[in-house]
């Protein structure tokens, strides 16, 4: 029973850790499928976390926070499109610019607004609840004491923030959008052969702007989840590499929603283990927590090396589309 309980606790943490990764990985999926390398997820998470928390504080409502957070990451995603699509800027450099700008702006503006060293004030003050709170699913309380089922349902499945459920609902939704709609068809086409898309009478630029709009919306949820739900406060650099980890999950998941989600869950699990056990013992050997932390990145490198399956990127990823004289 002890073991069962700790497994439930770890899995519970896995879901929480995986949530921002799932949003960000799905966000990255739209951009990368359209041919735009997205190392800017990190910055977009940070910017939405900041504006989300600030708006939630200002309006006293987590919903306003969600709206503002998503809007801010959409603005940054469109800036990304402006650089990479309209001006053929290098995708990696643009992404880097956004990440650095986001890190600086959130801290500097945050300090100017709130004078708390770049933090926003806590969103749970007094009776005001400007943060998201966990949701208890129906019957969760009643079932809590039932063995096994109570653990699984009341502990593991119930009691998460709304955004956690939304993240898992977003996976099939994004799959549908990408593989069963006109927009998704065009996004996938433009990342494989923009020339062909152009000759089919579709605007390459418009398709990519729209793909980055999707990126902005989804990644906004990731940022807002961190600041308005989990910590109920923004603090500088709170994204802490989650954007890059989501990118790794996206690659590890071969640019597909379901497999990317599985990768996010795996990375979330590793994070849960790392946090819980300072130096886990595995097969009688002490595994340093740093190794557990590094595992997502090591796994991605191993996958990219083609040692466990192959992850084939969209064909024209990273290349600006310029009409050439043929």
């Amino acid at each position: 029973m002890e073991l069962f309980n700790s497994i439930i606790v770890i899995l519970d943490a896995t879901l929480r850790n995986a949530t921002p990764l799932i949003f960000a990985a799905l966000a990255g999926m739209f951009s990368e499928r359209s041919g735009i390398v997205n190392i800017a997820l990190e910055g977009k998470i940070l910017i939405s976390a900041f504006f989300g928390a600030s708006a939630a504080y200002y309006f006293g409502s987590p919903w306003m926070g969600l709206l503002a957070g998503v809007l801010s990451s959409v603005v940054f995603a469109q800036l990304h499109a402006f650089a990479t699509v309209t001006h053929n800027g290098d995708h990696v450099v643009s992404g880097l610019a956004i990440n650095i700008l986001a890190a600086g702006l959130t801290a500097a503006v945050g300090n100017y607004w709130f004078s708390q060293g770049g933090n926003t004030p806590n969103l749970a003050f007094g009776d005001t609840q400007a943060r998201f709170t966990p949701i208890t699913l129906p019957f969760a309380d009643q079932l809590a004491d039932v063995p096994i089922i109570g653990g699984i349902y009341s502990e593991l499945i119930s009691g998460h923030y709304l955004l956690v459920y939304l993240a898992f609902a977003a996976v099939p939704l994004c799959w549908y959008i990408l593989f069963r709609t006109r927009f998704g068809l065009r996004v996938r086409a433009v990342g494989e052969n923009p020339h062909a898309v152009d000759t089919a009478g579709i605007s390459v630029a418009k398709t990519r702007y729209l793909a980055l709009l999707m990126t902005g919306i989804l990644v906004g949820f990731a940022g807002v989840y961190l600041s308005v739900a989990v910590t109920a406060q923004f603090s500088p650099n709170m994204s802490a590499g989650k954007g890059y980890m989501a990118l790794a999950a996206l690659i590890f998941g071969k640019w597909r929603p379901r497999t990317a989600m599985q990768a996010c869950l795996l990375f979330g699990l590793l994070e849960a283990i790392a946090i819980r056990s300072q130096g886990a013992v595995f097969l009688g050997v002490e595994v340093p927590v740093q190794l557990v932390e590094a595992t997502p990145y090591i796994l991605t490198v191993v996958l990219l090396g083609g040692f466990i399956g192959r992850s084939v990127a969209p064909k024209v990823i990273g290349e600006p589309y310029v009409k050439e004289r043929s």
Partner: peptide, 16 residues
């Protein structure tokens, strides 16, 4: 971290 903002703007305008 205003320094970081300045660096970000330089990368944005003279890079991206």
């Amino acid at each position: 971290r205003i320094v970081v903002v300045l660096q970000g703007l330089v990368i944005l305008f003279s890079g991206a």
